[in-house]
Design a protein around this nucleic acid. Structure first.
Lengths: 182, 182
DNA sequence: CATGTCATGTAAATTGTTACATGATTGT
DNA sequence: ACAATCATGTAACAATTTACATGACATG
């Protein structure tokens, strides 16, 4: 069902300029990291596919460097994907699976899980805030900036909600019994 | 890295009572659905593995039905996993990937994506609220209930946050230009 | 007697990461 | 000279879904 989203991540990235496989990986790690990941094991084979299909073009820009540029056909394919509603994807949230069976744990153990989770999101939120000011100062006039800020804002909303949820849940945990199942 | 979480989902489920492979699938679909999924293709082979390792026991309860029960060894393995902090898993949020490249779209097209997303979460939130009252009336005294409500609450927090984010983003979209990239 | 649910299973395909190999260039 | 970064690639592994096959039993 999740029909080769890496292809579109690559095509999308190439609308921002020519890139090598290496560049694409860095782009994913630096700019998409908080909602997307890519690995070399995907990037290089898919670049060859896209090339064969005429959705991208090759430009040798050095003896050991090849840049790729998106073609009109590639843009068409990307746009066709962009307008399709994002599929609802089945998630697997490990923390919640643990929490669902948490009666087997002591309150202290559940508390530790939740605190770890909370701290993770406090850290993430701080990161998002830092990236936001950085983007605004460095790319204040970039035409894509409004959309990039929207994706950041998503992360900020979610992290804030999950910190709130963690706090609430931790508080409620205090009210409950301290027994443990066998 | 995500070291066979299905094993623990199965072990956890079996702490609630004996189940067949079929039961486990239904349990996942009905009780874990909003944060976990399982398929037959995983369940049946893994049941055999767990059996071989002595983490579960077989009970033939009919000519074409086999129930499984967790053993003390299985409980130990489950508990060992439960206390380990949940690994941070790399997410891939398709909507955000689209939004990141949304300058290629018209405002109306972006708006459509966001509205679809918003509606999805309005629906989910309503579902969560319905399940919550249902659980509270039907299982008001179940010892696991507090933990189950915590997982529900997680979903409610996230959905509320994402509805808010959608609304904010839609509003901001109105303020922006109506141009489209080429 | 047809439809739906109960029940078990498997083969193939998909999707993706990890780990490695290789080597040039750049900076310290 | 050493480490880091640039650069391309692949093989092996892991996890998971999808689609199918099979058939009993229950209900209207």
């Amino acid at each position: 069902m999740p029909e080769k989203r890496t292809r579109y991540a690559i095509l999308g990235a190439l609308t921002l300029g020519r890139m090598s496989g290496y560049d694409l990986k860095r782009f994913a790690d630096q700019s998409l990291a908080h909602f997307w990941t890519e690995s070399y094991g995907q990037i290089y084979p898919i670049l060859k596919e896209l090339l064969k299909e005429g959705l991208i073009r090759e430009h040798r820009s050095g003896p050991r460097r090849t840049e790729y540029a998106i073609t009109p056909g590639g843009k068409a394919a990307l746009d066709e994907w962009l307008v399709r509603p994002a599929e609802h994807q089945a998630l697997r949230i490990e923390l919640l699976l643990k929490l669902f069976f948490a009666r087997r744990l002591t309150s202290a153990q559940v508390r530790a899980l939740l605190e770890e989770f909370r701290d993770q999101h406090v850290g993430r939120l701080a990161e998002f805030d830092a990236i936001e000011s950085d983007l605004e100062t460095r790319l204040g006039d970039h035409p894509d900036l409004p959309y990039w800020l929207m994706t950041l804002n998503y992360g900020q909303h979610v992290s804030r909600a999950l910190i709130e949820w963690s706090d609430q849940t931790l508080k409620e945990l205090g009210k409950q019994g301290r027994k443990r199942a066998t």
